[in-house]
Design a binder for these strands. Structure first.
Lengths: 342, 342
DNA sequence: TTTTTTACCGCAATCGGTTGCGCAATCGTT
DNA sequence: AACGATTGCGCAACCGATTGCGGTAAAAAA
């Protein structure tokens, strides 16, 4: 037997008062008499009255819901970010709607529209690999939808952003390899339309330059797909060079892992023959052998910070200046066996 | 300059017709004249009219939203499930609200209530480790909220369930260890209030029994916390036995990894001295060394199946019999180095 | 020309809750 | 006793879209 959802009107009818009185009584409005309040509250409790948040959302043009658009949920970094988002959002009384683009531009646009139509109070997003057209994002800004980018941001858009200091992290990783005595350091780069990949490449170059190393374009290879098989085959190519590298700094841990596979199959030693540093410090990085050195990317914290920024935007007054803060989180190089030569 | 959200009334006013006419025109109702329809559709497109789904939800008592309650988002298995959920839900035009209980009973109850108040059309959930009281879940059933449990199910509740065949998977894993010539097989079990842990333990016992092995309670240890440190210290205890085991079947891969750490620190060899099989086949399992044998748990598929079941419930008629199907997905033992003795 | 049909469109209620305003009854004051 | 103040509550509009029903005009049939 299905229990019916009871409404404010049911309570009103039962007690012979008007719905407005019930509404006010439930929120302890001073206009309502003590005795009436008591009766209404008692009955509400007895019937297990639960306010319909949909009606509230309509009335107040506020859904208490945040939308999230990410490339992929089943990914350690992004799921850590979501967890951070949910953490802050929950405490602020917000729900979180998750959508994934699966790295597809088309789907990213669909999700953007869908979230807009759902009238979410704000959107957190990390763009797909394919995204090179920003109309759908600009449109959100035009409608004044609070928007915060994280990790995969769009530099040219006038919105809040939370990133890790990719350049600094890459710089430290590369410097570390130099300090270990490596002379030819290769870089497995990411797709260059993503700012994060570009920044990591820049950090790598800056470290080389600061140490008066030559920058050899043959040692910089873009891995567009992001699979470890791709990184493995690209590493294979590099290893065939007449002067192969003695170190590899990879754009992420998966690529680093692919490189390790290629190196191992060639019977070369890590780190003696080739040292390796990855980026992101995924969970598996500490578990594989040799344990992979990597640059920690604080996903959970990124989710928290992004959500805090979003809250700030949502709660600001109509007339106040719009906020366009950018938060840059510190990375942290974790040195493990894969790069410890000395 | 903020663009305003335009409504059906704006269009109506602009064209000097009534809102009802606009509504009908936009959905191609035969009552509306061709010329009027054209004008309305044109203007709607020009103004980029987007229907307010909140209003629709209120009107139709249907939010096109699913709620998900899981213990932890940043967890490979669960994020794979979410991905599967989102996959099916998206195609069916549903949004997905994610909440995490962080293994806290209290928070699970809060999330349940919050989703109920949001009037989600259905709920998918995997209970927390702490959950031993089911009132909040029974309450959902009382209100006829479509509900599907996955992975961490509650056997006694009359709802749809999607699980993997834990017992069968554990049985195969244990049998595999027996076939490898192991004589004393230990089991790192999970918290026994979770059906999945109980089932895996049962599978382990059944395999032993079917092969006329003694069941030694000293070789069955519960890891309640689920951290690898815990598993490591418990394994240490076992290894101190006068007759230590020559194989370990762990309730999950993290526990298996903890066992590997303990074994390695004692300078024992894997699999020669002690063979190991885990459960879940997380991503890192194939990457660590020795590669960990494990029972694959199809998370993505589980999410898909659970969502399909939920859709079936949501779309069934008022009067039709309620559905309480249970789907059991096949597991698959992946044998790797950690258990390959012969 | 009168009646019936048909094509088109608007009124008003509805979903569930909120809120400005007004009204009646009681209370206090001079 | 008369009048202003206070208390306690209801009316009705509103948020945005949908929909049953009814109405008016022109077109078709009688």
């Amino acid at each position: 037997m299905k229990k019916a959802n009871i409404t404010i009107k049911d309570i009103a009818k039962e007690l012979g008062v008007s719905p407005s009185t019930v509404s006010r009584a439930l929120k302890d409005h001073p206009d309502i008499g003590e005795e009436t309040k008591r009766q209404i509250n008692d009955l509400a409790k007895r019937l297990n009255y639960q306010p319909n948040t949909v009606a509230l959302s309509l009335r107040q043009s506020k859904t208490n819901t945040l939308g999230v658009i990410i490339p992929e949920i089943a990914h350690f970094f992004f799921s850590a970010v979501i967890s951070g988002i949910e953490d802050i959002a929950h405490d602020a009384g917000y729900h979180v709607i998750i959508t994934q683009s699966n790295e597809s531009f088309e789907r990213e646009v669909m999700n953007t529209k869908a979230l807009f139509n759902s009238r979410v109070d704000g959107i957190l997003m990390s763009v797909s690999r394919e995204t090179e057209n920003y109309e759908h994002l600009q449109s959100l800004l035009d409608y004044d939808i609070p928007l915060v980018f994280f990790d995969r941001i769009i530099d040219s858009l006038n919105a809040c952003k939370v990133i890790v200091n990719d350049e600094q992290g890459a710089y430290e990783a590369t410097t570390h390899l130099i300090e270990q005595g490596c002379y030819r350091i290769a870089h497995l780069a990411g797709p260059q339309n993503l700012a994060i990949s570009k920044n990591r490449l820049n950090g790598y170059k800056a470290a080389l330059a600061d140490n008066r190393y030559m920058i050899d374009d043959n040692l910089i290879k873009v891995c567009g797909l992001g699979t470890f098989e791709e990184a493995e085959s690209i590493t294979n190519e590099i290893l065939e060079y007449r002067f192969p590298p003695d170190a590899i700094f990879a754009n992420n841990d998966v690529a680093a892992y692919g490189a390790m596979m290629a190196i191992r199959k060639k019977k070369l030693r890590i780190p003696e023959d080739i040292a390796i540093v990855g980026f992101s410090n995924w969970r598996f990085s500490s578990l594989i052998q040799p344990a992979l050195s990597s640059v920690t990317q604080p996903g959970f914290k990124m989710g928290q910070e992004a959500t805090r920024l979003l809250m700030k935007q949502i709660n600001k007054g109509e007339d106040e200046e719009s906020i366009t803060e950018t938060i840059s989180l510190k990375t942290n190089l974790v040195v493990r066996e894969s790069s410890k030569k000395i």
